[in-house]
Design a protein around this nucleic acid. Structure first.
Lengths: 220, 220
DNA sequence: TAGTGGTCTAGACCACGGG
DNA sequence: CCGTGGTCTAGACCACTAA
């Protein structure tokens, strides 16, 4: 049951890091190993992950240091897909053939697709309108009756990969009312294709982002 | 001199992977360790990286498998910054105070900034126009006389972090001619801020992307 | 010279899944 | 049951850097 040792150490380190000012050195890996009663390799794994995530940085053979907060790696491009905060309101859903979408999901044009349209918002702030397309045959009947479960795209992404295309366009009139914006406002529409681990397309999403409420920002 | 053992193994595995069809299993970590005459931990490190990069995927306790090519992790958002292919043609450069840009670089409004404007292209295909801003005081005089060296942003990024904001807008008239597009075309302008490892802003870039030649696509 | 991160070894135990 | 990946140990040697 217990979490792995390196994750426990990682979390404890994270607490320490938050108390320290940027560019201050942390203990050496050997010292940390003694402090936490673990081997150096285990401690190193925890530190490695914190470096990859941007909380720490290493400087040659001089040591490991606390990074500035603005170097922590973030990604709002996945928007409502991976973020936990926004609420969603479903506008409608249906099941039918959608020939234009079928190629993205790698299915025949006459196969059924489940389409859900929703608005993502945080309180009064309207972030985006989202069209979500599922291959009907990959969805169980139980899931159809419990759409809430389906709408948590997070779980799907964790299991596979996500490819996103950023498309500049003018906001279509029918979504302008949903987002309370002028039709023709320049926006970024994000096409997301979620694949299983083995590369099979599972979900296709089009997100129409409100540029005033939902800035897309990525730190690598 | 020699590359680390795990990198050598990684590259050899990569060659094997390319010959195998998707979803075929690779040898177990223990078998690979014997085959390459290395410890299991060393082999595992090679496999780990290939999994992170999307070339392989693991399936519970069943084994490790070759991933479909479309799950390989890519990123064209960094565009000309990280890609090697495009050629660049400098349009002009100057050194002066630019009060609007100074805040991004975390300097005073009356500090000098080096500004370079260039067009990125592959042959006849016009990909983007790029405005690059450097803090003058961080650049040596030698570099000013050898701008080519400065224009290789790749090296800067490797040393630190990059934060990108994606901004939808209409193509400004003065760049429309450069990209041979109609002014007012909806485009994505990417603001990139490159920081050193310790979090100090070093370079600020605005990239005006030609949507017809330069699709922005990311696979995580 | 002493300490750092980077790499590597040769074992070990665990939980889990398929015969 | 046995084989898989996931984790962990207690050492080791190296290149590099700062004192």
């Amino acid at each position: 049951m217990g979490a792995p040792r390196y994750l426990e150490i990682k979390n404890r380190l994270l607490e320490e890091i938050e108390k320290q000012p940027p560019n201050s050195p942390i203990l050496s890996e050997r010292e940390l190993a003694i402090q936490y009663g673990a081997s150096r390799m285990t401690v190193r794994r925890a530190v490695d992950e914190l470096v990859v995530e941007g909380f720490l940085y290493r400087n040659g053979n001089k040591g490991t240091f606390v990074a500035a907060r603005n170097t922590i790696k973030k990604n709002t491009a996945t928007g409502s897909i991976l973020a936990e905060e926004p609420e969603s309101t479903m506008i409608y859903f249906n099941i039918k053939k959608i020939p234009e979408i079928a190629p993205f999901l790698d299915i025949l044009e006459d196969e059924a697709i489940l389409r859900i349209v929703r608005v993502n918002h945080i309180g009064e702030r309207l972030l985006s309108v989202e069209e979500i397309y599922y291959v009907r045959s990959l969805i169980s009947d139980d899931d159809i009756n419990d759409l809430k479960h389906l709408l948590d795209l997070n779980g799907f992404v964790k299991q596979g990969t996500i490819t996103q295309r950023f498309v500049p366009m003018l906001l279509p009139a029918h979504y302008a009312t949903q987002l309370e914006l002028a039709p023709g406002t320049p926006i970024i529409m994000v096409e997301s294709l979620i694949r299983s681990r083995s590369g099979v397309p599972v979900i296709y999403v089009k997100t129409y982002n409100n540029p005033y409420e939902n800035a897309i920002e990525i730190t690598y």
